[in-house]
Design a protein around this nucleic acid. Sequence first.
DNA 1: ATCTAATTCAAGG
DNA 2: CCTTGAATTAGAT
Length: 302
Amino acid sequence: MRMEGQEMPEWTSYCAEPVEVYPTGTAMGSLAPLNSYMTLNTVGLPPPGSYQDSSSSTGNQGSGYQAYTCPSRPREGMKSYDRRTVGHSKPPYSYISLITMAIKQAPSKMLTLNEIYQWIMDLFPYYRQNQQRWQNSIRHSLSFNDCFVRVSRSPDRPGKGSFWAMHPNSGDMFENGCYLRRQKRFKLAAQEKTATRTAKETEGNKNPEKERREGEKQELGACQASFMEDREGGRGMGGHFMGLDVDELVRDTRYDFSHPFSISSLMGVGEQDAMAYRIPETSGEGSAFYQGVYSRSLLNAS
DNA sequence: ATCTAATTCAAGG
DNA sequence: CCTTGAATTAGAT
């Protein structure tokens, strides 16, 4: 039950209370969504005693995720596990996933660097440590990945740092339920990045140079390319996103289908669509639903 | 084993 | 704060 008009989704208020644990080696696709009310039993996981703990080796970079404490609403009869031993494990989300979640949950669909940091720390206790390290990684991710777009502050919204938004064509990068590694990056062709360099001061630069896109189309694959129809955005010299106006960056691009592990689901955004969890009635091969969800080039390439 | 995405360190603007 | 690059780690096949 989410409350309208609330700043943050309800689940963010208790997410700092780790009560559920996932076993080592759990396939990403089988992870329950953050706002799931499933119990360990319902997902058929081994008892808590059999979980490995990685929090003790806080600096254990490289040893992979041992366990993950899923932020969850404390429930009746749900014993909360020892947070000192099992909590603070690294969440099974890449920085790109985290950033994406943060931005998408924002009403404005745009956040400053610090707001992103804050959101992550509020939600995941693990990230309240080693801030220097992961925050540097976050910055690197933002600059390096074309799916993130830097939006300069408008004079009416003074402050420090730019805003970060999702590139309108980045698609739903995690609809397949994998938050650790995308199949393909969302890479803009060189021209797109360099496009509209001059329009920077011009303000009215709504004309991003819509030509020259055949090259990258083949590079990204047919499906992805279809996303690139019409208007293409680009980054100017300073890396600011200038090809599209803010409205486009900000619009909430939700998809018609809802996947149990989609970010929308994770964030409780699509609760009314929850029914869509239904699995297609055994279609001979490749139901429309899954074809849509798992279409490699279309959903992963971002 | 390989391919490539993600993470980390870190210099330079 | 932002961008890059090189080197390393690590998912997925």
